[in-house]
């Protein structure tokens, strides 16, 4: 799950770099740096939460936590 998130964010980053290439600007690469750092922050928090979930349910299944519904 966290890997997929990483992939999605990086895809967007790649699109930025490509677009920057098209206009021959550095802006695209700057945005990519932003994306990288933010993705790192998100994943850090995400890992912490997943760890706690694992402790509680002994599972890494994404649907293990689905008590809130309706």
């Amino acid at each position: 799950m966290l890997m997929s998130l990483e992939v999605m964010l990086n895809a967007a980053g790649l699109a930025f770099v490509a677009a920057g290439g098209r206009w021959a600007q550095a802006d695209g690469q700057v945005m990519f740096l932003f994306v990288l750092s933010v993705a790192a922050a998100e994943v850090a928090v995400g890992l912490a939460l997943v760890l706690r979930l694992y402790k509680r349910t002994l599972s890494l299944d994404a649907d293990a936590a689905s008590r809130l519904r309706g």
Binding site: L5, M8, L9, A11, A12, G13, A15, F16, A18, A19, G20, W23, D27, G28, M31, V35, V38, E42, G46
Partner: peptide, 15 residues
């Protein structure tokens, strides 16, 4: 995060 990825991709397209 997934929504952010969509947003980013949209921004990239606009750019």
């Amino acid at each position: 995060s997934a929504a952010s990825a969509f947003l980013l991709f949209g921004m990239a397209l606009v750019y």
